[in-house]
């Protein structure tokens, strides 16, 4: 049982839902990344999703793309990011998950990447460009190391494929709320509830919703029908927009607190 499985078992027994903030590693710098993770933990967030910057992120909208570019322009490396996560691990109770392109995992080596992140205290990985057909080798290695391999289901996924993804995903299933790229949206599609309900009824895994969730109102509406929510661009935009570094943590935590409050 990974740390993520334990978390969701506990949340379920308390009839609670998970809030998962996403941040880009190294944006604006790794010191801030470490501070943000610690702050999310202290606030009572349940999982922190850490984006490993990638040069060609086709699933990401302008906000996360720009944050990746900024981090990469500073010469950030996977090694330095994992060292930062390692320094956070003993200080936080929330599981950390890396969002990482398969291009990066393949280049580093599947075995090596999984072994490294587990050693540094990471509990799960999300590989947004690795569909279920291509995931077998990585899934096997993740199982051996008890690292959750969180897979995605989208509005364009057929029910037949969704069943297969439910069978091979571990930790939770990431339901992508929109047909599109990451980014804030005011209106979210109406088929979310139907699709998430179907996924929860047809598998044993928790189902969490991400992409587009950016307002307390979204959280209020979607947390009752899911097991957790992921908020990315709305947080990254606040990190990016903060020009005075001393205000970064207060400003971001203030926003994340409004999301947590909306879950109550």
């Amino acid at each position: 049982m990974s740390k993520i499985d334990e978390l969701f078992a506990q949340l379920k027994s308390q009839n609670k839902k998970a809030l998962m903030p996403f941040i880009t590693a190294g944006d604006p710098d790794l010191e801030s990344t470490a501070k943000l993770i610690t702050a999310f933990d202290e606030l009572g967030c349940h999982i922190c999703e850490v984006g490993i910057p990638y040069s060609d992120p086709i699933a990401d909208g302008p906000i996360i793309q720009a944050s990746y570019t900024r981090a990469l322009n500073q010469g950030i490396t996977v090694d330095a990011i994992l060292q930062t996560l390692e320094s956070c691990a003993p200080r936080v109770s929330l599981p950390m998950v890396t969002m990482v392109s398969y291009a990066i995992i393949y280049r580093i080596g599947l075995q090596e990447y999984v072994r490294d992140v587990v050693q540094k205290g990471v509990s799960g990985i999300i590989v947004p460009d690795l569909p279920v057909e291509e995931a077998a080798s990585l899934a096997k290695i993740c199982r051996q190391h008890d690292l959750s391999l969180i897979q995605l289901v989208t509005p364009t996924t057929t029910r037949e494929r969704a069943k297969r993804i439910l069978e091979t995903s571990t930790g939770f299933v990431y339901y992508v709320s929109v047909t599109g790229i990451t980014g804030e949206r005011t209106a979210l599609p109406t088929d979310i509830v139907e699709n998430v309900t179907w996924l929860r009824e047809n598998g044993d895994l928790p189902v969490c919703i991400g992409f587009g969730i950016s307002e307390p109102e979204h959280v209020k509406r979607l947390s009752p029908v899911s097991d957790g929510l992921i908020v990315g661009s709305a947080i990254v935009r606040r990190v990016t927009g903060c020009e005075d570094k001393s205000q970064l943590i207060p400003e971001v935590t203030k926003f994340v607190k409004t999301l947590l409050d909306a879950m109550e």
């Binding site: 086709i58 699933a59 291009a103 460009d129 569909p131 057909e133 989208t154 993804i165």
Partner: peptide, 20 residues
């Protein structure tokens, strides 16, 4: 059938595009 030319090729894309 998996789009492999020997080891090369395949399909490494977001799930959203798989159906198309």
């Amino acid at each position: 059938q998996f789009g492999r030319f020997g080891d090369f090729g395949g399909r490494f894309v977001p799930e959203t595009l798989t159906h198309a």
